[in-house]
Design a protein around this nucleic acid. Structure first.
Lengths: 212, 212
DNA sequence: GATTTACTGTACACAGTGTTCAATAACTCT
DNA sequence: AGAGTTATTGAACACTGTGTACAGTAAATC
């Protein structure tokens, strides 16, 4: 699977690592947008010319740097989610606990990137990632019953909500809750709705009537 | 209420309008980030020096320009929401139809601003706006029953979800659904959860057991 | 009509981008 | 270990955009 391509020059590997590390550190220290290429190469002890030999711009470095991390996450998801359809629905969709653990691991990074000092491309990338990751699960679920809303809308809703909750968690809640707790809470409100979250279940029928 | 302050110079009014209009048009044509001050002043037929006489930077112009629009929206919300606690819960929280109508009115603008070519500060501004707007309603609701989750988390969840749905609506759905339809769908999944949206209600108890 | 104030064009220093080039250092491969 | 390849380097360059200063002009207010 991990093909050993024409053996990459060690210098390339080193440069990539140095630049990645420098970027990540700088993001945490000062935010993304204000960082210049010069800042990155200075920190990495690499020539600015070298940077352009490898990357088109800051964004390309960022996304390349994220790739490794996200590959790991995605594999985790793919290993768990779409296949065991017969398991309990609840546990099956609850695997986003991994997402929140991942956020906890890189908390400083996400706190910045999900703030004014972050990058909009990054936010939408995360949104797209979340959407994509839940797609197979939703499709499987949809086979069992007739969905009442378009799947695209459902995944857009859930992905957006997850970003909102994540931002709240790292920013306002200061990660007071554990990854497991926040994952559980997110899962509960996502699956049962704010009606449940606010503490009343009695008038569920009313709302469903309103659906027509 | 609309206090007639020391009577603002007509030239100031005119410059503000010209710059606002130019910025909005340019955003729709080319996206936000790539626009320069020079672009704006060229389009507005105003000197670049004049720009700096009024605004610190592009962001300041953007948010000033948005203010008027959002003031109107907020007044709509405040007039409708927090006061009539005794009305049906469902209709009471369904007033975000206004939000989607507003998005429909400025669809081209939102399609850009909620894309890679948008502005991250704008996105978080909208998120904060949505959060703030639903706060009083949630607090009122919370008085009636004991909330099962922190109110901050609930509003973060709902605000994020609304942005996700809005982005999906203008971008992927190409606004095939009407504002009313999308508002209704959003409200339904928000209040009843994805479990309902996917078409099964039978195991609601299971999930609630999982809450402890 | 006098006075105040906003607008204008030009000019400047500055910061960051993206590319070129020839010299040098470090790696790979046999 | 040596030949050949390739990455890195620093200096230089043109270019774009920012933000400020200033003095002259136009257009408001009163």
């Amino acid at each position: 699977m991990t093909q050993t391509l024409p053996k990459r020059d060690r210098r390339i590997e080193r440069t990539h690592q140095l630049l990645s590390k420098a970027l990540m550190d700088l993001i945490i220290e000062r935010g993304y947008d204000s960082i210049t290429i010069q800042d990155i190469t200075d920190r990495a002890n690499v020539s600015r010319t070298t940077f352009y030999l490898h990357f088109k711009d800051k964004d390309e470095l960022l996304f390349t740097s994220m790739q490794a991390i996200y590959d790991g996450l995605l594999n985790g998801h793919e290993g768990l989610m779409p296949l065991d359809i017969d398991r309990d629905h609840i546990e099956n969709l609850d695997c986003n606990a991994e997402d929140f653990e991942h956020v906890a691991d890189y908390a400083d990074f996400y706190r910045v990137m999900l703030s004014d000092k972050g990058s909009i491309k990054f936010v939408w990338e995360v949104l797209a990632y979340l959407t994509q990751v839940m797609q197979p699960t939703l499709k499987n679920k949809a086979k069992e019953h007739e969905p009442k809303l378009p799947l695209g809308l459902i995944s857009a809703f859930l992905a957006g909500a997850q970003i909102g909750v994540t931002k709240w968690w790292v920013e306002d809640d200061k990660m007071h809750y554990s990854p497991d707790e926040i994952a559980r809470m997110h899962f509960l409100i996502a699956s049962l709705g704010f009606r449940w979250a606010l503490g009343w279940q009695d008038d569920g029928e009313k709302a469903q009537d309103a659906a027509q």
